[in-house]
């Protein structure tokens, strides 16, 4: 699991996850994600290149989103594949962190 960030416009940060968000993957990105969540307010979690997610990975995303929301910021999820999206919706995560498949809509959602 690898994590990188891209700036979109002036103040939106896209966090690109790449690989498996399992126990090992979550442990690998946990620290880096906390730092990003602690310093950015408008964040898109790009899961398009995530092939697998389990509860440890969800914990990592929810914790990051909580940190961002606590500062009055906004976090959304972008582009999960159908299997990954099913895990997120079954877990009820989509009701707290909206999922978008259109990047412009995701940017608009965090820019409000």
């Amino acid at each position: 699991m690898e994590l990188s960030t891209e700036a979109i416009g002036e103040d939106v940060t896209m966090v690109v996850f790449n690989g498996r968000l399992d126990v090992k993957g979550a442990a690998a990105v946990d620290m880096k994600l906390s730092v990003i969540a602690g310093s950015r307010r408008r964040v898109i979690f790009n899961l398009a290149e995530v092939s697998f997610v389990a509860s440890m990975g969800i914990r990592c995303i929810v914790t990051g989103a909580k940190t961002i929301r606590a500062k009055g910021g906004q976090a959304v999820i972008y582009g999960p594949n159908p299997d990954v999206e099913k895990v997120l919706t079954v877990s009820g995560i989509d009701t707290m962190i909206p999922i978008y498949h259109d990047l412009d809509a995701a940017v608009a959602a965090v820019s409000q």
Binding site: V62, A65, K66, R69, T95, M96
Partner: peptide
């Protein structure tokens, strides 16, 4: 129980 908001989210 699926959490209704992020503040109450427990994993």
């Amino acid at each position: 129980e699926a959490p209704s908001d992020l503040d109450q989210a427990k994993i």
